[in-house]
Every structure is written in structure tokens, then in C-alpha cells.
């Protein structure tokens, strides 16, 4: 399962790539593969204020709808408009072109609540041990 070394992660399978005051947010390889073909992305409103681990937006796949939680608190400064026309971008390139929103970080200390790439990788392994790892939905 691909994981990017310098990103930070949540247990809900979101990633954030922090560049100065701004964090770019998306979902992980594990999440996109569990969801299957993503069919619709409800983009957050630009200028929305979000809290860490609160709902940022939601994604739909053929038979499921999933909330996406923000890894960090702050204000949405940019959203990935390309996802409106091409939600499959997340399936094809979840860590780069399939980013969802850029958030201006309001509290840098919050990053200590996130998982590093190593920690996230261990977390995924623990999930695999507890559970066959099969997605229920086809």
C-alpha cells in the first residue's frame, strides 16, 4: 500500500501535506481502494472554517457515501475543482492530482495529533491483522 513519507495521516485515512501555513488534504490509497470507484465529490465551500477531525466534506462511490474529516483546523482556501468533472482522479492519483482541499492552518500544534508515515503504516498493518481486509462492497 503506497504511503508518502513526508505526509501526515489520520486514523480515518486522510492525509495532509503541510507547506508552511497551508495544508493540502486528501484521502489515502487505503481509503480510495476500500471505497472503490468514486462517483461524486462534494467539495467543501471555499472559506469554510473547519475543526480538526470534524467533517470536511463527503465522497460517494457506487454504493456508499463517506464523510471526510479534516486532519487540521483552519480555513479552506482552495478546493480541487477538477474533481467535479472527474471524481475518478482520486482513484487514479490519490496523493497528488486527487487532492481535495487546501486549508490555512490555524493551530500548528495540532499536527502532534496526527500519525507519521511510519505510524500510519503500522496502523494499517494492525487493521489487516484484525480483519480480513476485504471490503464488504463490490
Amino acid at each position: 500500500m503506497e504511503i508518502i513519507d513526508h505526509y501526515l495521516y489520520t486514523k480515518e485515512h486522510e492525509w495532509v501535506d503541510i507547506d508552511g501555513k497551508v495544508g493540502t488534504v486528501g484521502i489515502t490509497e487505503y481509503a480510495q481502494s476500500a471505497l472503490g470507484d468514486i462517483t461524486f465529490v462534494e467539495l467543501p465551500g471555499s472559506a469554510d472554517e473547519v475543526e480538526q477531525f470534524e467533517r470536511l466534506t463527503s465522497l460517494e462511490s457506487v454504493k456508499s457515501a463517506s464523510d471526510i474529516f479534516s486532519p487540521i483546523s483552519g480555513k479552506v482556501v482552495e478546493v480541487n475543482d477538477k474533481l467535479t468533472q472527474d471524481p475518478g482522479l482520486i482513484n487514479r492519483d490519490c496523493y497528488e492530482k486527487g487532492w481535495i482541499a487546501k486549508i490555512k492552518i490555524s493551530d500548528e500544534d495540532e499536527t502532534s495529533n496526527l500519525l507519521t508515515a511510519d505510524e500510519y503504516s503500522n496502523y494499517l498493518e494492525s487493521l489487516d491483522r484484525n480483519d480480513g481486509g476485504e471490503s464488504a462492497d463490490e
Partner: peptide, 12 residues
């Protein structure tokens, strides 16, 4: 558009 339906979203 089945993601709207109750058997998937349950209380949402």
C-alpha cells in the same frame, strides 16, 4: 445515486 439511500447511509 444509491449513496443517498437509507440502506447505505442509515441515519444519514
Amino acid at each position: 445515486l444509491q449513496a443517498r439511500e437509507q440502506h447505505i447511509r442509515r441515519e444519514k
